[in-house]
Design a protein around this nucleic acid. Structure first.
Lengths: 201, 201
DNA sequence: ACACACATGTAATTGGTTACATGATTTC
DNA sequence: GAAATCATGTAACCAATTACATGTGTGT
């Protein structure tokens, strides 16, 4: 097996952004790959220790300007090599589990209106996420970036997210339309129907 | 806490299709919700026992025509109620983890060509899955179904899958285009470029 | 005779979340 | 001086996969 995924995210983040502490690494993860990857402290701190013991990262001793005590780390050459090797290995897709789709699939056995509610929530969350991603994209384009060597890859994943969300939102409209004829029932929350899918500006 | 997801899939499957054994339940899962949900035997058999002990399902005693010894189960009224309650609870989305996107994101640090390889594989797998789903859809439409009360929900999830896959495939084309200018490197496997995205017939 | 699909299960391990414990620093 | 956020960590728990063990029936 040997799937230490957490370790590799940390290596990858440190490769882009050296001298970060566990706390910062987590924040960076949330802000950059957050929409398709998450890590908890309970996973990060122990892994940081382990990576240090294996010589893949080193705790920064210098530049003790840090206000509260905190430990920053950087990649060693061995760590960078390790990251590169992992990147070359075919990706492994872990078994998918989408509770939203599952509940929808079993919608026949749900009380009337339930599935519609789920789809509504799905829509709202996807809209929210989509606007976040579009903002991120705009910032990235406008701001510095561009010339950074990581930029195209970062854009690629962003574009992927945007494309998936748009398609999910389109689907959700047709899904609601389909269920409204026949389901309906007690459909609360008519909602001011805030526009529809955000478009790129 | 309290997310017994496995238990609910089993209840849901038995609600649609009673008198199934653990082995069959697993097959049914793979064939129906397989593209967004998976279960292993190590999870199914113990859960079956537990659900029996809780009175949510009953082992079928009758109709012992089954060639090899095997235990079939059916929902009890309590089990059906339990399923309904669970369906009404807002879905919980578990933290996303997409190793493909992660490796792509760190593509800057990969050897040349690596990211392209990943995308190629991604494309192939999505094409395969898409054709499978389209076949399923065609069968479902043509075949019996239609009138079954579960049909619209089943279609909804299928349509979702198809939409997501199409959008992913479109994205992958543009991604390859983007990486080909600059990456390239030693791009093996020029591949006979088997058409592109399958269209609906 | 051999292999493969049917069929049921258990044990070990792991990957991961959650909750808890603790304390410093900033901001209101 | 209270609250929020920065910051690091540990322990308990759990869901799930994997590998193993075992045996029957079917087809070649």
């Amino acid at each position: 097996m040997q799937r230490n995924q957490t370790a590799y995210v940390i290596l990858g983040i440190l490769a882009i952004h050296p001298h970060q502490s566990g706390y910062e690494i987590r924040k960076t993860i949330q802000q950059s790959v957050g929409f398709f990857w998450g890590e908890s402290y309970g996973q990060i701190y122990p892994t940081l220790k382990r990576l240090g013991a294996e010589g893949l990262i080193v705790p920064d001793v210098s530049a003790s300007q840090t206000r509260p005590k905190r430990q920053e780390y950087s990649l060693t050459p061995a760590g960078h090599l390790c990251l590169q090797e992992w990147l070359a290995v075919p990706y492994r897709e872990d078994p998918p589990r989408d509770e939203f789709l599952l509940k929808l699939f079993f919608g026949r056995d749900a009380a009337p209106g339930v599935s519609i509610q789920h789809i509504r929530r799905f829509q709202e969350e996807n809209r929210r996420l989509l606007t976040t991603l579009l903002e991120l994209e705009a910032m990235a384009r406008a701001h510095n970036s561009q010339s950074l060597p990581g930029f195209p890859f970062w854009m690629l994943t962003l574009n992927f997210g945007v494309a998936q969300l748009r398609s999910a939102l389109e689907w959700s409209e047709s899904a609601l339309a389909l269920l409204s004829t026949g389901e309906a029932g007690l459909v609360s929350n008519p909602q001011p129907t805030n526009s529809t899918v955000p478009e790129k500006p």
